[in-house]
């Protein structure tokens, strides 16, 4: 505590900046942790429910139970697009879908768009973790360099270079690097962890898209 209070104004500002980085990083870590956990567990439950159900409209009526799953969003988008295609088809002569499969392409595009929006949502704020992880040690190092410069200036003025004179200044300076590392290490670890989890969810979304399109194509082609 005395080390922080005894530091210079620049070092104190650096420490304040690093502290704010750390607070925001941990806020994002907590938020992302619960978001990804909810997405994962509800996706598993949704897939069970999806494969047990026989009809899309029955699934559509129950999607609110799995609101945090990205697959639900995909299903919703795909189902809505499919409904539109079927409505358009019923207004026309009824042979368009079975011949050129243009409606399946529409559903595929809708699913791709939903996938992208879900990836964006899941990866939101992760850039801050990456920024914190990469820049905090350097910001801390800047504080340390500044503190050592100030300490050496003081040593030059006093004219004494004993350990008792040099050590406190160096200790005050090094605290900035320590805080920088304290902010950076959890941020980097969390960033890697969430990247892995989100990649798994993206794979699940791709698999679901493929399955959904297969079902649509099978049913439409079977008409």
């Amino acid at each position: 505590m005395a080390i922080i209070l005894g530091a210079g104004i620049i070092v104190k500002l650096v420490l304040l900046l690093l502290l704010s980085f750390s607070v925001v990083s941990w806020g994002i870590i907590l938020f992302k942790f619960f978001q990804v956990q909810r997405a994962k567990s509800e996706s598993e439950r949704f897939m069970d429910f999806f494969w047990k159900s026989k009809r899309f409209d029955a699934i559509a009526s129950q999607v609110d139970r799995f609101a945090n799953s990205p697959l639900t969003v995909l299903f919703n988008e795909g189902y809505n697009e499919l409904k539109k295609v079927v409505e358009t088809d019923s207004k026309s002569d009824g042979s368009a879908l079975s011949t050129d499969l243009g409606g399946v392409e529409n559903v595929s595009r809708a699913l791709r768009r939903a996938t992208n929006s879900e990836i964006t949502r899941l990866e939101k704020y992760l850039t801050f973790l990456a920024t914190t992880g990469s820049t905090s040690p350097f910001i801390g190092l800047f504080g340390t360099v500044w503190g050592i410069m100030t300490a050496f200036e003081g040593i030059g003025k006093t004219g004494s270079a004993s350990l008792a004179v040099v050590a406190p200044g160096i200790a005050e300076a090094l605290i900035a690097t320590a805080i920088g590392l304290v902010a950076a290490i959890p941020a980097v670890m969390a960033y890697n962890h969430f990247q892995h989890k989100i990649r798994v969810l993206i794979n699940e979304m791709d698999s679901f898209t493929t399955e959904f399109l297969n079902i649509v194509q099978r049913n439409i082609a079977g008409k």
């Binding site: 607070v23 806020g27 619960f34 969003v73």
Partner: peptide, 20 residues
Amino acid sequence: MSAKPLRIDTGMGVSFIASA
């Protein structure tokens, strides 16, 4: 026309308070 979004992400403020 896109579908109505199912949810809005909340809990960021709570996470920041917990972090602080």
